[in-house]
Amino acid sequence: MGDVYVNIEWNFKTIALIVLAALVLVGTNVGQYFVLWGPKQKAITVKYDNEVAVLQATIDKVGPLVGIWTIKDGIEGISPGKKVEESDLTVKEIPESFITQSFILDPESIIGKYYRVGISAGTPLSNDLVMVDPMDDTTREFDVVSSVMPIGLKIGDYVDYRIVYPLGEDFIVLPHKRVEAINDKTIKIKLKEDEIHYYQASLIDYFLQSDEGATLYLSKYVEPGIQKAAIPYYAVPKNILAIMIADPNIIKKVNAAINGTTRTIIDSGVSNVSPEDGAVIAAGRDEIAGKIDGGSSQLKSEEQANKDAIAKENAALPVPTPVPTQAPPASSEPLNKSTDKIETLPTPPTLNIGKGVVE
């Protein structure tokens, strides 16, 4: 009976020690939490809350993402004067706070206009990068002939249409015209009513003076979207001037006094050319025109050779062998087989350059 009492007493002591140790351990951890870890955790929480608040304020300041229109990746050949087409464009998102009034948010506002400068892929479009050709109710497409075409002239280039008389008097008949099409020695441009009369007058002058060396030619702008258009400087004969004054489609009439002064200069220069001098000048102009035409033909041949070389290189590329598939079980449906395709390299456009000289 005494042994049982001792054993029970020992068990109570053991239990009491264990409980006391547990209380000490728990008390120590709880104390450490309140004394050490609690404040530290609170400080960390405050720090993170502040960082989140700063980030949220930054996001609010930057604003939501907004889509702007840019040149599509992989697009090449965006040169000054090229018409803006929907296939050139893609949308990219930037923060709203970065948006300015010049960014293009609606592609319809620029499609059909013309690029002012050469643009590379990925460039965000703005109103400053496009331009519009002025047009009124009398604007028409017109086929214009030229004795000499610039080497490398292409659709989208801007040119001045000029006439040079036998003794070198050079006049700008039609300034800053976009080349809409090229066919041999003829280009398609847009002309207003008064410009059509100027063109017809320059043709008459050319026909009458071509045997003495008069030449119709084009001069190409380097940066048409940046350079200011030249001021036209040419005068029509009196009979055409009378028609232009009477033409009800011409709103801004020609200043007869200024036209008369300039026309006197033209007629005086022409009257000073003797038949002998005219023949020499005409031969020299024909020689120069022939050399320019030769340069155009050479450029066209080089471009064709480059095109043929690219086509030959593409044809020599190996055709990939389809990866064989395992035969399906008899009870299953036959598997579809596919053959990988090689994406061919893009072929550069061929410039349509005129040959020969208009006689």
Rank of each mutant, 00 (worst) to 15 (best):
I292D: 05
E276R: 11
N50P: 01
K238S: 06
S219K: 12
I240G: 01
T344G: 00
A282M: 00
T264V: 11
Y114I: 04
D49H: 00
W37E: 13
H197Y: 15
A53V: 08
D205M: 03
A22V: 11
V19M: 10
K252R: 15
Y48L: 13
V62H: 02
I104F: 03
G118R: 03
W10M: 05
E223L: 15
A246R: 07
V148S: 06
T139V: 03
S338E: 12
L89P: 09
P349I: 02
S219R: 12
K355W: 02
V144Y: 03
I151K: 10
A230R: 15
I288V: 15
T70I: 12
T261N: 09
T70W: 00
T262N: 14
V144G: 09
D49Y: 00
L191K: 10
I265A: 15
G290R: 15
I353W: 05
Y115N: 07
E96T: 08
G225Y: 03
I94R: 08
V323K: 13
N239R: 04
G278E: 07
V222Q: 12
V144T: 11
Q304S: 11
L17V: 09
R140M: 11
K307D: 00
T264H: 11
A242S: 13
M149A: 04
N314K: 03
A16Y: 06
K291E: 13
N127R: 12
V358M: 06
G38I: 03
D293L: 09
V148F: 05
I78C: 13
L351P: 00
P224H: 09
S274V: 08
V145L: 07
F171N: 15
S268Y: 05
N249G: 13
